[in-house]
Write a protein that binds this DNA or RNA. Structure first.
Lengths: 332, 332
DNA sequence: AGGAAAATTGTTAGCGCTCACAGTGGTGAG
DNA sequence: CTCACCACTGTGAGCGCTAACAATTTTCCT
């Protein structure tokens, strides 16, 4: 049987509260007492029961991180950074996967895994404000990424500006027929809409006529779906001069198809991605991309979340994380 | 303020215990009562307090998953599968990163994040039995991967056999000078040792003389370290005919270096990896690898863990997951 | 030295839940 | 009609911890 505060208290010859004081270090404890208690803790191999502490305090010290799919490199890098930053600050992280399912996103936001978590960092794919019941008091939530709504605090990269800059960068290498991979046929994700908007803005600036046959739809943003979408596109369309993929993962799938067809990157077609996942720089050829500091995303998200957990008041805040265009071999 | 069982009970005109019975569904409840209670739960937007339940039951419904580094594709895929399988069975998953730090591995095993978790799935890198204090009662633990010790239940792939088979497969394409990337100079990880052993066994079978200049050390198994290690190796050694990388991540780093140097894969050198991460099939060229079912690893690990959480007795068990050699373009 | 303030420790109670057990009412057998 | 027996529901207690408060000791000043 595990030792409890009582056992420790008895062994140290003090009251349970004093043991608690030693553990938490808020209330001052005299040196001699502290030593006695710490000794007893060691001897009994005492570990505090977090369920009890959570019940008493109303806080568990655990936050949840909800991502569409942990297996994708982007999500994995975000998760890595959030876990690391959270750990530094003494938080544990519970992982939830939404599978891009809006129902699951809402469920997590409104119920928030009952009381075992104190807050939620959510990377939504489709989150529609109207569907969140008004009057339901939300737990502390921070949203990650491009969300058009103003449901909660939010950390994001300016996708419109980034997509515009990337399109301009591709044009600067002399290419005019620039295709994008990752648009949606119906109403797509917020990210798809914003990145398409940035792309169009750039074309307009450049005085290039809009040509919707250069929009290659691809609903799910995986290498596989990107490969399939691009392959079928190429069967019925001429090769564009550049291909701006809305994520690095899609770019990797795309380059794989191009290579299989003997189309050379970047001499036949330039390729660019978005996210700067670690694998991008080891892709063949290394991938031009929109880069941003994921550690910063994580730490800002956690900052917003802890601040909101501390006191519920305050305006909804938005943190915009800087990005930069990183030109590698794929856009030569 | 959140509603509690008491509130629900009052509103439904029953006792708290009955509400509890409805929630848990073990003790039978009459249809009429059940309806009343469910109605009240809905109206009050009642969510049970898991801290309280955990305190009362001694179990929290949360398991921990500890991996070296979530950002690596291999860990990410494992995490994805564990989270998904666990979720199907009603478990939540708390993520811990060890950073391959043995101290952290021990700490997790012996203290197990106190009582907020009911069990631990740990993917250790270096875990040395001798360092675990005898007499400390371990929480339910399942180890993932190649671990030489018998500390706990374990799910793994037979690395020796797999490395042997891969070496034989590479030899079957007519190549004799087969190098391996990922050995350690000092005492390395269990996986490095076992894979090297399999490689040597194959060479012996083939009657190829042992040539230690074909062992390319690389302690950390990342694309970056692999790229650096291979680049420096190639500066002072002739190009081998085949390169067996101990993980897919390393293979991706290696192929990036080869491409930068104008060395063609597979015509100049065949490349193979281990793990079958998703990106491998979209690598350029697509990567030959040792494949195994990660979903199966996850579900077996969870099965062992839940069984052990249910009753502490029983022998230590080992589950071996099948693998197969998948030959893609990189070994031509 | 006397007394008040400050520092430290103890006491009581209850967070929300579910276990063991004790009822309650209804059914069928004797 | 009585009693054993089932199906269901209620009662009381306490899991381990710490907030609020009370009690005690120490410190420091005049």
């Amino acid at each position: 049987m595990r030792a409890t505060v009582k056992d420790v208290a008895r062994r140290a010859g003090v009251s349970p509260k004093t043991v608690s004081n030693v553990m938490n270090g808020i209330v001052p404890v005299s040196g001699a007492t502290r030593v006695k208690v710490e000794q007893a803790i060691l001897e009994l191999d005492y570990v505090p029961n977090l369920s009890a502490r959570g019940l008493r305090n109303g806080r568990s010290g655990v936050i949840a991180l909800a991502l569409p799919d942990l297996a994708t490199p982007y999500s994995a890098e975000i998760a890595h950074n959030v876990v690391e930053v959270a750990h530094e600050q003494g938080w544990s992280v519970q992982i939830e996967e939404t599978g891009s399912d809006p129902r699951r996103e809402y469920e997590l936001m409104s119920r928030a895994r009952s009381n075992l978590i104190d807050g939620l960092i959510l990377n939504p794919v489709v989150l529609d404000e109207s569907a969140v019941k008004v009057g339901v008091s939300l737990p502390p939530v921070v949203l990650l990424g491009e969300v058009s709504q103003k449901l909660a605090d939010r950390v994001w990269v300016d996708s419109v500006a980034a997509a515009r800059d990337m399109t301009l960068a591709l044009a600067r290498t002399g290419r005019r027929r620039i295709a994008v991979l990752g648009t949606a046929e119906g109403r797509g994700s917020a990210a798809a809409i914003l990145r398409t908007r940035g792309y169009r803005a750039a074309l307009e600036e450049l005085g290039i006529d809009r040509d919707d046959s250069l929009l290659i739809p691809c609903e799910k943003w995986t290498p596989h779906t990107a490969a399939v979408a691009l392959a079928s596109y190429l069967d019925s369309h001429p090769l564009p001069e550049a291909l701006f993929c809305f994520t690095d993962s899609m770019a990797i799938g795309a380059m794989s198809v191009l290579w299989k067809r003997g189309i050379s990157v970047p001499s036949d077609v330039a390729v660019a991605g978005f996210d700067d996942i670690a694998d991008g720089q080891y892709a063949v050829p290394s991938l031009t991309t929109v880069s941003f500091d994921k550690r910063r995303v994580a730490s800002e998200a956690l900052r917003l979340l802890t601040e909101r957990m501390a006191d519920r008041v305050g305006e909804q805040r938005v943190v915009t994380v800087d990005y930069k265009i990183v030109e590698r071999d794929s856009s030569g």
